[in-house]
Amino acid sequence: MGKKRKVTVITGFLGSGKTTLLTHLLKGPSLKNTAVLVNEFGKVGLDHHLLRRIDERTLLLGGGCLCCSVREDLVNALRELLDNDHRGDIEPLERIVIETSGLADPAPILFTVLTDSVLQHHLTVDQVIVTVDAVNGQFHLDRQNESVKQVAAADKIIITKTDMASENEVELLASRLLTINPSAEIIKSIHGNIDNHQLFAPNEKVKSTPLISLVESNSFQGKHAPAARSISLTFDQPLDWSAFGLWLSMLLHARGEEILRVKGMIDVGEDGPVMLNGVQHIIHPPEHLDEWSDEDKRSHIVFIMRSIDPEQILSSLHAFQNILGSRASIREPVEVL
């Protein structure tokens, strides 16, 4: 069996420039072996030979919360694409881009791809790209919970319409986005003008750049009521994988809806780290890397949550310290732009 096909999710609030970004992407030659699933054919003429439309139909599993729901429409569309691919009706697929509607929560999409009995063996979620409008972004973050959720789930955030806002505004927005989601990579763009390679390159931020700490996150409280808060932690010793899994699965079981995002590199005492990536209840299959990319070989984990005090996470980890075999501490504060 060949390699799994990559799934990229593009989301963003209403009118934040998803379609513009997509239109620009489709013009480039790099999307040759890519299928695109869009939510609605807008007025903008999207032209691509593998363009499909999906209606957002959500199937809520019995007893599940909203993030653990299956997008039935998506399952059908993706299975059909796979069918065509296997039969050789279309060019071999390498990537599938899913554009969501502006109010969609990305979590059910990830849940669908990662748990469907067929899809999980053929597809892997590559990354979640979120567009944020430079002009109205702040307003959306204040008023719309969906917008905060989208930002928290992002691997990459594209700030669009940067030509229409002042430089100062853009910087303010960028630092606010980083406060909500310190693990995301931020790219600024005008008219969806973005290098395709940069867009689809993996985000390696958790390991390369220092993250903002709790201190930074709290400094925003005066200005906005914090819809989401983040904490980034480091551990002094290698973590015991099965103990950490025990703790995290317990935390996600009890507080999954409030934990918007978990992302990190974990030292489990092997040659390379384990990449951990989770949105709400859904944890991506952990990826094992062969080696560390730099000298700093400590485990780093970022938690993004709402209505939980970051201090609680830390004291819970301290209480479980005996089992985990490693002590957690907050990463030293780092200056943000």
């Binding site: 009890a254 507080r255 939980i308 996470i313 004291s315 301290h318 209480a319 479980f320 005996n322 089992i323």
Partner: peptide
């Protein structure tokens, strides 16, 4: 009853 790893009671029991 529901369980919660952030429950202060549980955390206290787990400490040395």
């Amino acid at each position: 009853t529901p369980i919660d790893p952030l429950d202060p009671k549980l955390m206290n029991e787990l400490l040395p």
